Simulated assay, not measured.
Amino acid sequence: MSETPTTPTESVPIRHPRAMPILVTGILGVTIMPVLGPVAWALGRSTLREIDATTMRYSNRTTVQVGMILGVISTVILVVGLAVVVTIVVWVTTGDGIKQTNHNAFEAFEAFVATAATAAANTGR
Rank of each mutant, 00 (worst) to 15 (best):
V89G: 04
A119W: 04
Q65F: 04
P17M: 00
M68Y: 01
I73Y: 04
V76R: 04
G44H: 13
G44C: 13
I14E: 02
R15I: 06
P21T: 05
T118W: 08
R18H: 00
E10W: 05
A19K: 01
G37P: 09
G67L: 04
A114Q: 06
T93S: 14
I77K: 06
V24C: 01
P17Q: 02
A42L: 15
G26V: 00
T93M: 14
Q100H: 13
A119N: 05
I14Q: 01
T63A: 10
A116I: 02
V92A: 11
R61F: 03
H103T: 14
V92F: 12
V76C: 04
A83N: 08
A42W: 11
M1C: 12
F112G: 00
Q65T: 10
A117F: 04
T94W: 11
G29L: 05
I14K: 01
A119R: 08
V64N: 03
V66P: 01
R18C: 01
E3C: 01
T115A: 06
R125N: 12
T54S: 15
I98Y: 14
L23T: 00
M20S: 02
M68W: 01
V24R: 05
N122M: 04
A83M: 12
P13A: 12
N104L: 15
E3Q: 10
F106E: 11
W41V: 07
A119C: 00
R125D: 11
V66Y: 10
G71V: 04
A117N: 14
A53K: 10
A83C: 08
T9F: 08
A105V: 11
I69G: 01
G124T: 00
M1Q: 11
G97F: 12
V80R: 11
G44Q: 12
M56Q: 14
G81S: 15
I77T: 07
R61C: 05
A119Q: 06
T75E: 05
G71K: 04
N104P: 03
K99D: 15
T93Q: 13
A108F: 07
L43Y: 10
W41H: 09
I27Q: 00
V84P: 06
T54Y: 09
R49M: 11
G67V: 04
H103V: 15
L36G: 01
N60C: 12
S46N: 15
S46R: 15
R57A: 14
L78V: 02
I27S: 01
T123R: 05
T62L: 13
T9H: 07
T87R: 12
V76E: 02
M56P: 03
T115M: 03
L43V: 00
G67S: 07
G95W: 14
